[in-house]
Design a protein around this nucleic acid. Sequence first.
DNA 1: TTCTGTAATTTTGTATACATGACTGAATAC
DNA 2: GTATTCAGTCATGTATACAAAATTACAGAA
Lengths: 207, 207
Amino acid sequence: MRTGGAAQALAYEKIREQIVTGNYPGGMKLIEERLAEEIGVSRTPVREAIRRLEQEGLVRRKKVFKPSAKELRDHFKMRILIEAHAARMAATYMIDDDLDELKETVGKAKAIRDDSAAVVRENKKFHDLIVRETRNPVMIETVDRMQSIIYLFSRAVVINKRPGLLDEHAAICEAISARDPEKAARLMEEHLEADLEFTLAIVDWEE
Amino acid sequence: MRTGGAAQALAYEKIREQIVTGNYPGGMKLIEERLAEEIGVSRTPVREAIRRLEQEGLVRRKKVFKPSAKELRDHFKMRILIEAHAARMAATYMIDDDLDELKETVGKAKAIRDDSAAVVRENKKFHDLIVRETRNPVMIETVDRMQSIIYLFSRAVVINKRPGLLDEHAAICEAISARDPEKAARLMEEHLEADLEFTLAIVDWEE
DNA sequence: TTCTGTAATTTTGTATACATGACTGAATAC
DNA sequence: GTATTCAGTCATGTATACAAAATTACAGAA
């Protein structure tokens, strides 16, 4: 953790945990005093933790962030723009060791279709490896923020695993391997667009 | 202001002012107690103001942010990616009223070459109008953050006004007007790359 | 019923005191 | 002369009390 002390770190972890597990649902008001009591610290570190979660995009105006369909789309589009660029960079610059690792994640994910959590982990790693090729911390961090928010919704989506997802990963991997930047970028774009549409279709926007 | 009370707003404005005017130079440590006394509020709102400036990218680890050449480049590249995309969108979707406004900013900037502050304002407006065409608040806000940081350096650059800048704006404007997305994007990319290189060349990285 | 104004309650913002931890610099051992 | 450790200071983190603001609940009128 880059700032703050122990109490703040504790508050941050605990609140974040509750949000990403869905235990604190979207729209829920975060009341400082209550959280402070629950966690066993004073209001001050809770406040700071909430501010950090706000910066991270998980909290908005003291409430657990609940993006509209439009907002989810906006976050996805930002991610698509960066990841398509990243795929282009990867096809151009990725060294063979990393390429091997990339292939490995696809293989692993194929092998363990049943362990949902593990598949999620491999898929995230796949994208992270590619984004890393931008060699641009600003972009890497931005994608991370987008992912945090998208994953808030994707719990549902990941369980209803989208058909073709792994094949698309394999195809992207191949394009990078073949050093074809434009194809890699195009495939990545299509892949994430499909993810977006699938997510929008699955999620229940009425609740 | 979207959060906090009067004291916090005051602290935020005052500190930000000092940073963007260069009165607080890059690398300067922000000491809560000192600022609190200077502004006439307690440490609490100063803390929150500093956090917000941190989120905005103007402060890093309690010090006024002073990007390295690499970091400035990274922020620029993020901006280029979004603005090239925005130019593409603008060429496709921008309505005539906005296009007229865009042309006007170029004309105005050409007319008032002597008033440096006004030229800066017009140039910023030019870019903002195009970025708006993404119709994506996430991207708009990201560009804003990048610009805040870049402008921290560009004070010097803007005074040494870069040759060709206005002609490039005019050319981009034309490409959008001609509904040529790829050309608009390419010109925007070249324009900002030139800005980046000019900035890197001008700024004194040793100080 | 539904609207509106006001009182009551809750929640956040602010100030402040104290605790903890980081930094500085001098004195001493080597 | 250099390294080390200890003390003193300075800045930040945390807790808490009080003030201000926002929200809710309710009463009365249209």
